[in-house]
Design a protein around this nucleic acid. Structure first.
Lengths: 128, 128
DNA sequence: TTGACATATTCCCATATGGGAATATAATTG
DNA sequence: CAATTATATTCCCATATGGGAATATGTCAA
């Protein structure tokens, strides 16, 4: 099975850095024609139009015809699923002290079985 | 240019629904061996190991060797970039009243130059 | 009408994918 | 040692990708 389509959901749509840039732009300036986005991103126009097409398909933006230009607008509320999902982890970095203490405890427990001291293949992952 | 690697950043890593499920699991149960994740997701073990590899590479999870099993742990703080990014749009749906008030203010400002949709569509500068 | 401008669409391709299948590696037990 | 268990890795492939290039579509102006 290949990777899911970029238009399969908002999570896939915003995985593209350029599309996030477009979203940021549209959040600052309420309405933007494609040309303005092209200038701001420095991407070729077809590339921008394709990104906008993806954002359109997942409902993250809407278009309004205005003369010969298409003015895009952000539908902020479509970002809510992402916000709601990631918000559930908020508490874990909000109470860092608690977390660090917990980790220390766990480490002490896990240390009952002590790995290491061989030819060493892969070290365990490290994080902050 | 093809799509960016799933390991290029957290946004790409969490685009995969199964990886989000793994993250949720690891958030509920602090530590989980691969086998437990396999059971819970109902995915073949190699698939799970590959997803864990992606999450490992972007730093979203850490491993601890414990006997012959690998116990995974979520590094919540790595989700912060996503949270911070999407949080900037919070006001647009969370504080509707504020938002409406803001719009009114902006409108008052923008009213110095009055755009219209009939004859004039040349310079439609949008304020920041 | 023709021409200029703004945007979208199509075709192309190198690349990464997620899962299937098989295998490799590692640790425990007898 | 061999066998078992737990996990990771490799090879395979159909599929979607993002941008380049070219073109199509749509809209205004003269």
């Amino acid at each position: 099975m290949p990777r899911a389509s970029t238009t399969s959901d908002v999570f896939n749509a915003i995985a593209e850095p350029r599309r996030r840039q477009i979203i940021e732009l549209l959040s600052q300036h309420r309405n933007l024609a494609v040309g303005a986005i092209v200038l701001s991103l420095g991407l070729p126009q077809p590339a921008v139009s394709k990104h906008l097409g993806v954002l359109r398909e997942v409902g993250l933006v809407s278009v309004n015809k205005q003369g010969q230009s298409r003015v895009y607008e952000l539908n902020h509320e479509q970002l809510r699923p992402v916000y709601d999902w990631v918000k559930t982890f908020e508490r874990h970095w909000d109470r860092q002290l608690d977390r660090i203490r917990e980790r220390a405890e766990k480490r002490a427990l896990a240390n009952t079985t002590q790995p290491d001291q061989s030819t060493d293949k892969t070290d365990q992952k490290e994080q902050s």
